[in-house]
Design a protein around this nucleic acid. Structure first.
Lengths: 123, 123
DNA sequence: GGCGAACAGTTACAGCCGTAAATTGGTCCG
DNA sequence: CGGACCAATTTACGGCTGTAACTGTTCGCC
C-alpha cells in the first residue's frame, strides 16, 4: 500500500487503458515512448505486484498483469492530495489559478460551462 | 532547481504566508504542527537554500528567510503536472471527476458557475 | 528427455527524501 | 576577550524511486 510512484503510474495507465497485458506488451506500450529499457519496466511491474496494485495471472501460456486498484481510486487520491495541499480542498481556486496562468482556450471554457450547467440543474 | 519536495513545501508555505521568517519562527510555524524537530526543519531550510527556493538575509540581528520562487510558480508546476498526467492537461475532466467522486456542494457549483461566466464574457 | 530461447522474477546501485544529530563559524552581550 | 546564541554546513541513515543487469524457470523443438 505504499503509493504508486510516477514511473509506476505509467505502467498502470497502460493496463487501465488496455486491460490485462503481458510484460512485453507493457514494455511496448510504455517503455518505448518513455525511453525505458525492458529491465526498467520489469522492475516497475514487480514493484506494482509487491504493492498489490497489479496481479499476475497466467492464461494461455502468457502471464498477464491485471490492475487491482481502479484508476478512479488512484486519480481520486492524487487529485485530492493536490487540491488539499494547494487549494484548500476546493475546485474553484484551482480553476481560477489555471485560468489566470494558462489562458483557458475558449473551447475549454465552453466545455466547462456546459459541464457546470449540467451539474447545476439535474443529474 | 531540483523541485521542491513535500516536506519542503511546508516550509515554503509558511514563508509565503507570513513573509520572511527567522529559523525559529519557521520551526514554530511548521515544525510543531508537523511534529518535526528543530533539526529537521533546519535541514529543509538548507535544502531550500541550496536549490535557491529560499534566500537568507540578515536584518536587525536576525537572519530571515525569504522566498525566491513565487507560490504561483510552484502551484503552477504542481497542478500542471497533475493535470497533464491524469487528465490530458485539461480542466474539464478534472472537474467532472471531482464532481462524480466527491459531490460538489451546491455552493461550490455556484462559485464555479460564476467564475466560468466571468471568464466567458469579459476579460 | 535435454537444450536453448523466451519469459518471469531478483538483485543492484545511485540519488532524493524524511528525519535528525553533530560540528563549525559568526555575532553580540557582558 | 570569552561565552552564549544562532546560523550554516556536514554527516547519518533507512526508505523510495529511477534506472538497469542478472538469474532462475518454463516450454517448445529436436
Amino acid at each position: 500500500m505504499t503509493r504508486i510512484s510516477g514511473a509506476e503510474s505509467q505502467v498502470m495507465e497502460a493496463v487501465w487503458g488496455k486491460g490485462p497485458l503481458a510484460a512485453d506488451e507493457i514494455v511496448a506500450e510504455v517503455g518505448a515512448p518513455q525511453g525505458w529499457g525492458e529491465a526498467t519496466v520489469k522492475t516497475l511491474i514487480n514493484r506494482l505486484l509487491k504493492k498489490k496494485a497489479l496481479i499476475s495471472e497466467r492464461s494461455e501460456g502468457r502471464t498477464r498483469y491485471r490492475a487491482l486498484v481502479s484508476r478512479a481510486d488512484y486519480v481520486q487520491g492524487e487529485s485530492q492530495g493536490l487540491l488539499d495541499r494547494l487549494f484548500g480542498g476546493e475546485l474553484a481556486p484551482l480553476v481560477a489559478h489555471y485560468a489566470k496562468h494558462r489562458n483557458l482556450s475558449p473551447g475549454e471554457v465552453a466545455r466547462l460551462k456546459r459541464l457546470i450547467e449540467s451539474l447545476d440543474n439535474g443529474d
